[in-house]
């Protein structure tokens, strides 16, 4: 028996009103207490319930690679992102902290889906820009500072095979600051960043992962295990 009653199969979360969704969530939690509330998690994201269920298969895999507890620990996140268990990395740390919305040291399934949803092609640009600002605001001061940007660039270069000299990194960071720090105070605030991202949409293009648009089609192996039948 599926987790969601047959009468609801084929409906996207958008087609369920809130009351129905809450009732459905209650039924769901009664039937299988160990499964996440897929309907509730899908609401407020561009993902359908089936796609959230597909993401759960992926989540289960990642969250059991080191510690088998269905939670993503930083080491598991590092391995999944970079395929290695290298030393601590600033870039991974910051990305992990953004996914770990509760700040309890692990990424839960709901956090995983909500964070990934920012990279969905259907997510609003404002949401992508806000997430990116938090990523660059390494020490969470409310500003992007020059040294933070440089540290981030160095950290990602350290994990990549790109060979960029220290002088070139300085030039890249200087040039970026010249472009975005319109107030000229040596730091980029939210207002400057928003304006810069609006005028230069290419800085947000990597905040979209095209295959998230229809994850059950791109990753059909997930559908094999799906318990929710969702028609067009």
């Amino acid at each position: 028996m599926g987790c969601i009653p047959t009468k609801h199969a084929g409906q996207s979360p958008d087609s369920l009103d809130r009351r129905e969704a809450v009732a459905l969530a209650a039924e769901t939690s009664c039937e299988k207490v160990n499964l996440p509330d897929f309907v509730n998690i899908a609401s407020g994201t561009p993902f359908t319930v089936s796609e959230v269920e597909a993401l759960h298969d992926l989540f289960r895999k990642i969250s059991n690679t080191v510690v088998k507890d269905n939670l993503i620990h930083k080491e598991e996140f590092h391995v999944a992102l970079f395929r290695n268990k290298k030393k601590q990395n600033l870039f991974v740390d910051r990305l992990f902290d953004l996914f770990d919305q509760k700040g309890n040291g692990v990424i839960e399934f709901g956090e995983f889906v909500r964070s990934l949803s920012v990279f969905h092609p259907g997510a609003p640009e404002e949401q992508k820009a806000a997430f990116a600002f938090k990523l660059y605001d390494l020490r969470q001061t409310g500003f992007i500072e020059r040294n933070e940007l440089k540290e981030m660039v160095c950290a990602l270069l350290d994990e990549s095979e790109l060979d960029i000299t220290s002088d070139a990194v300085e030039m890249i960071v200087d040039r970026t600051f010249d472009q975005a720090d319109t107030k000229g105070d040596g730091r980029i605030d939210q207002e400057e960043w928003t304006a810069f991202a609006k005028d230069n949409p290419y800085v947000l293009r990597n905040m979209t992962l095209p295959y998230l648009k229809d994850i059950t089609m791109v990753f059909p192996s997930f559908v094999v295990h799906s318990e929710i039948s969702e028609a067009d």
Binding site: I62, L81, L149, I172, A180, M207
Partner: peptide
């Protein structure tokens, strides 16, 4: 020419590429 790169683009490119790795886990 690396100088043509923007630091924001470089960082977000890395975030996008590496998050893509999640799906090959």
């Amino acid at each position: 020419e690396p100088v043509a790169l923007n630091a924001f683009e470089l960082i977000s490119m890395s975030a996008g590429l590496n998050l893509g790795n999640l799906f090959d886990s």
